[in-house]
C-alpha cells in the first residue's frame, strides 16, 4: 500500500496533468515494490470556484490510466476550501497492490558488481514544468509522466532483478545517492551513457539547472545481476517506456555511500544529492 499527495503548477502541462500524475505516481510506487496495482482511493481538495469542467477533465485522465491497467478507483472524498485557503487543487491517491510471494525489490538486495540500468531519458518532467513556470517556449518538450507497471511486469521474472526505483522528485541523482547510502556500497556512473534529451539540456542551460536533479515521472533505475543485463535491456527495449533503456553504471565495493560520475571530459566527480528548491540562476 502507498499514499502520496500531488500538487503541480501549472495543473496541466505537455504530456500530462495533475490527474494523470496522481495515478501514475501511485502506480509507479507500487510497481517499484513489484506490486500489481489493484485499487486506488482518491482524495480531492479544491479551492472554491475551481472550474468544474477543468476538474472533470483531470479526473477523466486519471480514470483512463486506471482503466487501461485494470485498476479500480474504489473510494474517494472531495472537500472544497474557501477561496484563498488553497492554491486551486490538491490530489491525494492511496494505492493498494499485490506483490508476488518472495519477491522483494528493496535496496538491501544490491550487491557489488550489479549493473544499473536506466529505462529512459532524464529530466523531462522537471524541465517541462520549469519551462512553463519561467515562460520558456520549448518545442517538443513534454513530461514523461507514464504508468510503469507494465514495464515492471515484463522484467519481474528475471531472477537477477535486485531493486527498482522510479526517479521522481530530485531526479536520478537523488535515487543514486539514496541507493549508495542505503546499501552502504559505492556506485559508479558514466555520464555519457545517460540520455539527456536536447529539449531538457536546452532548458537546463538557460536556467542553470542540473538535468540529473530534475524530476522524471516515467523512468526507472534498475539494479540487476551482471549476467542478466543484456537480456534485461533487450526485454526493456521492446516496449514504449523502455525503448531508451541503457546500462549507466554499476555497484562497486569502493567508496561506500558515494556515487562517482565519470564525466564527459574524462574526469571524475561526486554525484551528490540536490539541495532544496531548484532555482534558476544567472551565475
Amino acid at each position: 500500500m502507498t499514499i502520496d499527495g500531488y500538487t503541480v503548477h501549472p495543473l496541466s502541462f505537455p504530456g500530462g496533468n495533475i490527474g494523470k500524475l496522481a495515478v501514475c505516481g501511485t502506480v509507479n510506487d507500487l510497481a517499484c515494490r513489484g506490486a500489481k496495482p489493484l485499487y486506488i482511493a482518491l482524495g480531492v481538495l479544491a479551492e472554491e470556484g475551481f472550474d468544474e469542467r477543468e476538474f472533470l477533465g483531470y479526473l477523466t485522465d486519471a480514470s483512463t490510466v486506471c482503466h487501461r491497467l485494470g485498476i479500480r478507483i474504489v473510494t474517494g472524498d472531495t472537500k472544497v476550501l474557501p477561496r484563498g485557503e488553497l492554491d486551486r487543487l490538491v490530489l491525494t491517491t492511496c494505492g493498494l497492490g499485490k506483490t508476488l510471494p518472495g519477491r522483494d525489490l528493496g535496496i538491501s538486495n544490491l550487491r557489488p558488481g550489479d549493473d544499473l540500468v536506466l529505462t529512459g531519458p532524464v529530466g523531462l518532467h522537471g524541465a517541462t514544468i520549469a519551462a512553463l513556470r519561467y515562460g520558456l517556449k520549448s518545442e517538443g518538450l513534454a513530461s514523461d509522466c507514464a504508468p510503469l507497471w507494465e514495464l515492471v511486469k515484463k522484467i519481474l521474472p528475471f531472477p537477477g532483478l535486485r531493486a527498482i526505483r522510479d526517479c521522481t522528485r530530485g531526479g536520478l541523482a537523488t535515487v543514486l545517492c539514496e541507493w549508495a547510502e542505503g546499501s552502504r556500497l559505492g556506485i559508479e556512473v558514466d555520464e555519457s551513457s545517460i540520455l539527456v534529451p536536447d529539449t531538457v539540456s536546452s532548458v537546463c542551460d538557460l536556467l542553470g539547472f542540473d538535468p540529473f536533479s530534475l524530476a522524471c515521472e516515467g523512468c526507472l533505475i534498475i539494479g540487476v545481476a551482471p549476467g542478466e543485463t543484456e537480456a534485461l535491456l533487450e526485454n526493456l527495449a521492446s516496449s514504449e517506456e523502455g525503448r531508451f533503456a541503457s546500462r549507466i553504471g554499476s555497484i562497486i565495493p569502493a567508496h561506500p555511500g558515494w556515487v562517482s560520475l565519470l564525466t564527459r571530459s574524462g574526469g571524475r566527480r561526486v554525484l551528490d544529492m540536490p539541495a532544496g528548491e531548484i532555482l534558476p540562476r544567472i551565475c
Binding site: L261, L262, T263, R264, S265, G267, R268, C283
Partner: peptide, 16 residues
C-alpha cells in the same frame, strides 16, 4: 570566477 569553479568540479577536471 565562480562559474569556473563549478565547471572545474562538475567536469572533474582537477583529476586531469
Amino acid at each position: 570566477c565562480g562559474t569556473h569553479t563549478v565547471s572545474i568540479y562538475r567536469s572533474g577536471l582537477r583529476t586531469l
